[in-house]
């Protein structure tokens, strides 16, 4: 049994962050696949670990840690292995700024669009009472509202439009950033890349109108550079969906 246990879903968005950080550090961990589409995150066993009912969560010895970006920072500080933050204070600032921009501004818009287009339709065809019962056990009131909208297709045109605006702008800003430096916020691979990569690697597939070889060459080159890291390859074998296979095809097209 490893000293670390990670509760995660597919290696993307928030779950992918600690998975990839642990893998880059070479820290062995016990994987507890927590299926968001089966609502495992709201079952009593999981709520005993993270009462907020969101994935991921990590147990290290006696310690329970939540919040994907904060978990990554802990992983980088608590374990040996290659440093995942640069030394320079200004580079560190830039990486933190980008992670917050993703976690609190751009990421929620990706989530809203993803839940509206994919997650909602994937869970929707259960009986109404069952869906209501699933909603009733969600601990966070704001998540209860989000799930209700996803399940019953109730996101408003206005909020979806605002999310689309943010996604388009966020991609432009990232494209500009990656034209300045080889990695997010600095010249070396860091937590910033892990964070942003986990929410953007699917862009060429999900938003081909916004992210492509022609439109966003800097993003595409960076995606490819990160994608080829052994830790990414290894992490992606832990996914159950066909994510990894689908995106491999896209990445291979990038020169």
């Amino acid at each position: 049994m490893a000293d670390v246990t990670l509760y995660h879903w597919e290696p993307n968005a928030n779950s992918g962050k600690p998975m990839l950080a642990l893998m880059e550090k070479g820290v062995p961990f016990d994987s507890r696949y927590t299926n968001m589409l089966e609502f495992d995150q709201h079952k009593p066993e999981y709520l005993a670990v993270n009462p907020q009912g969101t994935i991921p969560a990590m147990i290290h010895g006696e310690r329970v840690l939540t919040e994907s970006t904060a978990i990554m920072e802990y992983v980088d500080q608590a374990f040996d292995g290659p440093a995942l933050m640069p030394e320079d204070a200004r580079d560190r600032w830039r990486i933190r700024w980008w992670m917050k921009f993703m976690d609190q501004w751009l990421g929620p818009s990706f989530s809203m669009l993803g839940w509206s287009a994919f997650v909602g339709p994937m869970v929707r065809d259960r009986p109404r009472e069952e869906l209501e019962a699933l909603i009733a056990r969600i601990p966070l009131p704001e998540r209860r509202r989000a799930w209700r909208k996803a399940m019953f297709g109730e996101f408003s045109e206005e909020e979806l439009g605002e999310s689309r605006r943010r996604v388009a702008l966020g991609i432009d800003l990232l494209e500009e950033e990656l034209g300045k430096r080889p990695y997010v916020g600095s010249d070396s691979y860091s937590l910033g890349d892990i964070n942003i990569f986990n929410s953007t690697y699917s862009l060429p597939v999900s938003h081909p109108d916004l992210a492509s070889k022609d439109k966003t060459p800097n993003i595409m080159r960076w995606l490819k550079r990160v994608y080829h890291r052994p830790a990414v390859q290894q992490t992606w074998t832990m996914g159950r969906g066909d994510l990894a296979k689908r995106y491999r095809l896209v990445i291979e097209e990038i020169d």
Binding site: T66, E67, A70, E73, Y74, Q77, A78, K100, Q104
Partner: peptide, 17 residues
């Protein structure tokens, strides 16, 4: 300490959010 640092980071994040 990394764990206390994590606690502080979480606190600051919740404060900001």
């Amino acid at each position: 300490d990394p764990y206390v640092h994590w606690q502080m980071t979480m606190w600051c994040r919740q404060t900001s959010e």
